[in-house]
């Protein structure tokens, strides 16, 4: 009697006694279940969710509260209306009490609203980190898959490039690259913000894909010798399908782990570069806010604490969450 494929595909196997059917769980489902039981991870996920919602709703919130980070906005109060002769705000902190008009006060010298700036800064952080993480993951996966699966010179060339990038002092290069690229487009001041933004993401991607590529290559090297891949090759499955349909699903764990640990790293790098004055200056960035606020600390501590706390909480939550994701996907950790 021939076994039809349909009979094999039945995912649920009932045992002889007719008790509860045993359903198979994929490793990803098991990991997600473990993650849901992790209290720290869930709290961090909640924090990240809140900050994401705040970042997404930034235009709505600032619009409703009538606050502006961009002082050139037609509805924003002009500097002479809200700042004294020394450049300090005349309403709200640091010298006057709390006011609902500007809950976190105004920035000295510019008069831009700190809450609005914070929300838009969060937005920038998240967009930069998310796009850089997704793009670098994509590049890392593709390069790792191709170099792991192809034998011969393709693998050697790709591995050499990966090793070169890894041994390269990437942080120094990042520092040097950002302003040099921007200077090439620097003539046009209207575009400055966009150019800085795109440059920053590109730089984070250029120096962010290598570790995943290596990880994936190693995994593919061992996976491609397994029977199911050999079987697929023997029956003539196209290479592309083997790569993306057979190999890729087995690489979910390293990809998800790298992605979730890259997010906080990129948030920290974006803010760090902007803090050094080499990242973003034309659009709101938490790092730039820190560097602006540093000189005002003795008179206006709140101005510095707002971005410092935001960066600290965001990276801490993302990192702890990423760490829990790694534990959840690692079959060796038992809790």
């Amino acid at each position: 009697m021939a076994i039809t494929p349909a009979a094999l595909e039945e995912g649920v196997v009932a045992d002889a006694t007719g008790a509860e059917p045993v359903a198979g769980k994929s490793p990803t489902q098991i990991a997600l279940r473990r993650l849901r039981k992790d209290k720290v991870a869930m709290f961090c996920a909640f924090l990240v969710l809140v900050m994401t919602v705040l970042a997404i709703l930034a235009p709505v919130i600032t619009g409703a509260m009538n606050i502006y980070w961009d002082v050139s906005h037609p509805d924003a109060p002009t500097g002479s209306e809200v700042l004294d002769v020394y450049g300090f705000p005349i309403i709200g902190p640091p010298f006057n009490g709390f006011t609902w008009e500007h809950p976190l006060g105004l920035a000295p010298r510019t008069g831009s609203d700190n809450l609005a700036y914070l929300l838009y800064g969060l937005r920038t952080s998240m967009i930069v980190a998310f796009s850089a993480a997704v793009l670098s993951t994509f590049i890392g996966v593709v390069i790792g898959l191709v170099s792991g699966f192809s034998r011969g010179w393709v693998d050697r060339v790709l591995s050499f490039i990966t090793d070169m990038f890894l041994s390269f002092p990437s942080l120094l290069a990042m520092l040097a690259l950002a302003p040099i690229i921007v200077s090439h487009f620097g003539g046009n001041l209207d575009l400055l913000g966009t150019v800085q933004f795109v440059t920053l993401i590109v730089i984070l991607v250029i120096f962010g894909w290598m570790s995943l590529a290596r990880l994936i290559r190693g995994q593919v090297l061992s996976l491609r010798e397994r029977e199911f891949i050999q079987a697929a090759e023997v029956i003539g499955v196209p290479t592309r399908q083997i790569l993306f349909k057979e190999l890729l699903p087995n690489l979910i764990a390293p990809i998800v782990i790298t992605l979730s640990l890259n997010l906080p790293a990129f948030v920290a790098l974006e803010a760090g570069l902007s803090f050094l004055g080499l990242g973003l200056s034309d659009i709101p960035s938490l790092g730039k806010m820190v560097s602006d606020a540093r000189t005002y600390y003795s008179d206006y501590p709140l101005f510095l604490w707002v971005p410092v706390a935001a960066i600290g909480v965001l990276t801490l939550a993302l990192n702890l969450l990423g760490d829990s994701v790694r534990d959840a996907f690692d079959p060796r950790t038992r809790r």
Binding site: A271, F275, V308, I311, G312, T315, L316, N319
Partner: peptide, 8 residues
């Protein structure tokens, strides 16, 4: 400590 950026 590892999770918070060094400069913070």
């Amino acid at each position: 400590i590892y999770s918070i950026p060094f400069y913070v």
